[in-house]
Design a protein around this nucleic acid. Sequence first.
DNA 1: GCAATTACATGACTAAAGTCAGGCAAAATA
DNA 2: TATTTTGCCTGACTTTAGTCATGTAATTGC
Lengths: 291, 291
Amino acid sequence: MSLNPVSRIRRFNRAVTTETGALDHSFLGRGRPLGAARVLNAIGPTGRSISDIRNFLGLDTGLLSRLLRGLEDEGLIHVSEDKHDKRRRFAVFTPKGHAEYEAYETLSNDRAQALIDRHPNPEALLAAMDLVASALGRDRIEIAATDPQSPHAMHCLLAYYGELATRFSMGFDPSEAAPLDATDMRPPRGTFLIAMSDGLPSGCVGLKGTDKGYAEIKRLWVAPSARGLGLAKRLMSEAESHARALGISTLRLDTNSALPEATALYHRTGWTEIDRFNDDPYPDLFFEKRV
Amino acid sequence: MSLNPVSRIRRFNRAVTTETGALDHSFLGRGRPLGAARVLNAIGPTGRSISDIRNFLGLDTGLLSRLLRGLEDEGLIHVSEDKHDKRRRFAVFTPKGHAEYEAYETLSNDRAQALIDRHPNPEALLAAMDLVASALGRDRIEIAATDPQSPHAMHCLLAYYGELATRFSMGFDPSEAAPLDATDMRPPRGTFLIAMSDGLPSGCVGLKGTDKGYAEIKRLWVAPSARGLGLAKRLMSEAESHARALGISTLRLDTNSALPEATALYHRTGWTEIDRFNDDPYPDLFFEKRV
DNA sequence: GCAATTACATGACTAAAGTCAGGCAAAATA
DNA sequence: TATTTTGCCTGACTTTAGTCATGTAATTGC
């Protein structure tokens, strides 16, 4: 009875509700009701428009207006009007508000740190949490173009190389693979897309421009915690849209038979297998698609 | 920045808060405030004493009293006095209350089921959730004596056998191991202890009485999701207390060098290695301890 | 047996959260 | 340009949650 899947999830819910309840309670310690603290947190260091806050927190206009007025009276925020649309308003922190925001951040961070510190295997715990968070927030994964040398991109690429190293029987050394020039993966020659799942980079794909009449798809990777959610397919289809927008009509890619999921995906999504078109030592399968 | 452990935990918190918020909201759909729904849920099909409910939900006497009165007025529960102590009161469902309780259960269960259904690898998701729940609720793991043939005990034993099968190079077949008579693990000859982590059996150990002047420790197992929390040590020390209470002064156990964590634990907790004392084919290490 | 304690109920209150109906200025649309 | 819509604010409300003091009956401890 307690062992069936539904019971296990409900046990998880109980554990997590207790934990968040305790965090909420510690937030109350700063002498401000939870509603106001939530608004402060929603504003964030870069400021935020009122309508954004309303959507994010799901609040009524009246209620939010009053909460903002309260924070303003406390001297924590400053609300100014948007230059382009004077109906819209934008909230930013005062120095005092910034300090207060940081105090709430510290409460959350300390709690998170304590959880890590007392666990015997933090990496396993974090991996489990990533997986659960991705499962819960699957519809909130967003794909956006990023610079191929941004920290998030580097994170994805390192994870990608690490995985190739374990999956290829001969290992994988990035320096032996075909060198990549970052400018080939920046507009207007190409692009680099990252899938962000509420702050966690969960996948990537590169579109690399060449001077040979086609562009290449490179570095398609999906984080273990986000696999099976159809993310690879979404990344590929976004990459194809970007290719079309850049005026590219032929795409090529290379892959290795040690990555059967990838190969299956290419077959499923209209790619045709072609002959070897480069002398990179790692790939043994080559595909092409017209977009 | 979003890749450090603290950020990952906070991302998890956000995902989970959204999810529980959505569940709470669906609870509201039954036209009853959350407080009343929580009380209904706390009562449960078997009924519950008022003081229990108060402790469980952390409510003020006045508030709970009013919430109970509300549920009573709706015709959902019936509150009667305890026979032995007429100050105490006990709440049970009326048939209508039972139906309402089930409706809430269905909301929770459907949500959980949906999460399983849409995930590509439900077993991995559940394992991750178990691990997180154990990490959050580690101080709430309780050890209790159970019948060695209870469903929870069987669950532990099957998991234990499954694990031995993967860890022993020669595999493991329970039928070839020394047969176990359940009466040897019931008082007064012995006992069987289970560690329960909020409804999930997370570990076990058996104390098996013999007629040879000593008792044996058997089937020490800790669920993967609860490892590293010191549970094995707690189980062993509980088993020793039970042995003392049963008038047993010498304990023995056998184990296999393929289980180094176990062996290390025995060395650490006062056990001395002795010569083989049985002809079971699986063990290759033998220990004794006086309690 | 008497005082203290316990278990629960009641009344009187407050704070927080949320709803709803205007209202006003700016922007979008016709 | 006139009308409608949008984004936000304000005032007047209700509901929910929770606190505190007091009361009453039953039980426990001395």
